[in-house]
Nucleic acid binder design. Structure first.
Lengths: 133, 133
DNA sequence: TTAAATACGACTTGTGTAGTCCTATTTCAT
DNA sequence: ATGAAATAGGACTACACAAGTCGTATTTAA
């Protein structure tokens, strides 16, 4: 409950790692070994980060990944959105189909949860990966 | 990912409801019908809120629940902690056994996630159920 | 041509959430 | 006393999602 997924953690670690080596090209093998992350899982994460244009992939031998922009331009929220594939929402109201929520009509906590949601977005948006030192 | 559980939502709705009827005794049946919440599930939630001393139970016929303190004295964080039975943590580091985390030793994001954790706690602590109107 | 790397889909397993069912206990009202 | 209305609480099922594994294709430098 209210936990970040391992994928998001791995993504943050990977981006932070690339930034820490001055954006030199880094491979899945290298990162997964250094931080004890299952390489297949990390590979998928990197592919999502690539599709989300947070990092750039370099295929083929001697390939790997570099950042697509400065680490100070990548927020934790960016990483969450790209990896999860949807907007973060603390309740159904704020993500997928709100109407499908079983208590939608009689729900009395939509508004206050909306305030919380807003505050959480502030927190995740303001935290940049560059602060992850 | 990063969602509140239905149990927590139900708990917030229930507490808010009791407050809205001026702390008159309210039953599971009444609340579950009004807000279309499965009554068995709500019953368990109410029992946890009782054990957590956020509400007071009145057993037997004509029984039900009242608030144990003012709605302005009950934070969303109180409800989360009591219902989930453990401290909210956005990563393993901040809840159960941190050492069991597969990447604990090499984890480079413990500190920054700690900052996020702290900010989230501020948000959830400062939001009281009385604001849920 | 080969080796090292990313790309990507299919599958398995594990965990946790949500919900159901059943029974026991308490207490009010008749 | 008895029955009805309420809370208390354990056991179980179903399902969704997270995490991880496996296999194969594609790209590219040497």
């Amino acid at each position: 409950m209210l936990k970040l997924s391992k994928k998001v953690e791995y993504g943050l670690i990977a981006i932070r790692h690339i930034a820490s080596v001055n954006n030199q090209i880094s491979t899945v093998k290298e990162i997964s070994e250094k931080y004890s992350i299952p390489s297949d899982v990390l590979a998928k994460v990197m592919q999502k980060l690539t599709k989300g244009k947070l990092i750039t992939s370099h295929q083929g031998a001697m390939g790997g990944y570099t950042l697509a922009r400065g680490a100070d331009q990548i927020s934790v929220m960016n990483v969450i959105s790209v990896i999860e594939g949807s907007q973060m929402g603390i309740a159904q109201c704020f993500s997928e189909e709100p109407e499908n929520c079983s208590i939608y009509l009689n729900c009395t906590i939509k508004n206050p949860l909306g305030k919380i949601q807003h505050n959480l977005e502030l927190v995740f948006n303001s935290m940049k990966v560059s602060e992850i030192v």
